[in-house]
């Protein structure tokens, strides 16, 4: 760009709406929230308290117990997604991408259906199906002779979080499936045929040739899962309410922040503590994204076909 040229106003016109909306509704509130976390309300005025809110959140027994509980639950929630959702997604994609499979379109669309449903539908539908009153789950277990295994999974402290995580897995398995499927389709046939010449077929072709080639996509679905899980809220809220019962067993950072911000039962809402929790979530997500960008993504070898 030369200095003598006049200002090219059309560039400004093209950029302005997006930049204004994005800055005003996303970036500024993000920083305002981080800033609010440094304030507190004392006698109805907003005063600067530095890092006091964080000291309360991490150190004060009344707050820290809930915070560490929510954080621990959130990590368990994420662990189940990584251990169940992504392997199932990869397996389904591997089967779907096998050559000359008939009805592949149909299977793909059907398996993706839960992903398009809202959390409200998913939460309530599973609540009804697992409910001891309606009895679909106990009756079905009875039919295969396993009724002893039935328990009101969503109602027990020991099982409710795992059950909800599995419901969420059921809902979102379509996303890793699709992304891995796309990655598998982009592997050229020549590579697989070269493997065949060396006697690598079937399962060993998957482990030795395809899996190493789709590692970058597995990295992407891992970070997408991480970000999604650490700002999850809707499913827990739909199925268990803002109190994330039973006895906060299903409380994760999203529901904890919602309760703190808006108040519940006898406790008043506190936007400053809410902001402090949001800041903690922001920090966790940022750490996760940085680990991915600098620790994992740069080490994965990408192949150009």
């Amino acid at each position: 760009m030369s200095e003598r040229r006049p200002v090219r106003w059309h560039i400004v016109v093209f950029l302005a709406p997006a930049v204004i909306v994005y800055t005003a509704v996303m970036i500024l509130p993000l920083f305002a929230t981080l800033r609010l976390a440094l304030f507190a309300e004392v006698e109805q005025t907003r005063v600067f308290v530095g890092l006091d809110n964080f000291r309360t959140l991490f150190g004060d027994p009344r707050w820290s117990a809930s915070f560490w509980n929510a954080l621990g639950n959130n990590f368990w929630f994420f662990a189940i997604h990584m251990a169940v959702q992504n392997p199932i997604g990869i397996a389904l994609a591997a089967i779907l991408s096998s050559p000359r499979l008939r009805f592949a379109h149909l299977y793909r669309s059907a398996i993706f259906v839960p992903t398009i449903l809202s959390f409200v539908i998913v939460g309530f539908a599973w609540k009804l199906i697992l409910s001891p009153i309606w009895g679909i789950a106990p009756n079905m277990l009875d039919a295969i002779g396993l009724q002893k295994l039935y328990a009101p999974w969503l109602g027990l402290e020991s099982t409710s979080l795992t059950t909800l995580a599995l419901i969420s897995v059921w809902q979102f398995v379509g996303i890793p499936m699709m992304l891995i499927y796309a990655a598998l389709l982009s592997i050229p046939d020549e590579i697989l045929e070269a493997g065949e010449c060396d006697g690598i077929t079937g399962l060993s072709a998957f482990w030795k040739i395809k899996l190493p080639l789709i590692l970058p996509s597995i990295g992407i679905i891992s970070i997408l899962t991480f970000v999604g899980n650490f700002n999850a809220f809707d499913l827990i809220y739909s199925a268990q309410g803002a109190l994330a019962g039973p006895n906060f067993a299903t409380d994760i950072l999203g529901t904890f922040m919602y309760r703190t911000f808006f108040g519940f039962q006898l406790q008043l809402g506190d936007p400053h503590m809410g902001s402090a929790i949001a800041t903690a979530m922001f920090g966790i997500i940022l750490i996760g994204v940085c680990i991915y960008l600098f620790g994992i993504q740069t080490r994965l070898r990408r192949y150009q076909f």
Binding site: V25, I27, A32, L36
Partner: peptide
């Protein structure tokens, strides 16, 4: 720089800013 600035929001969920969005 503008491209990077606009791309920031791909990874950071807008929900983090909820408290300030509501105030606004």
């Amino acid at each position: 720089l503008m491209g990077l600035y606009l791309a920031l929001g791909i990874m950071i969920p807008i929900r983090i800013g909820t408290v300030a969005i509501l105030e606004m």
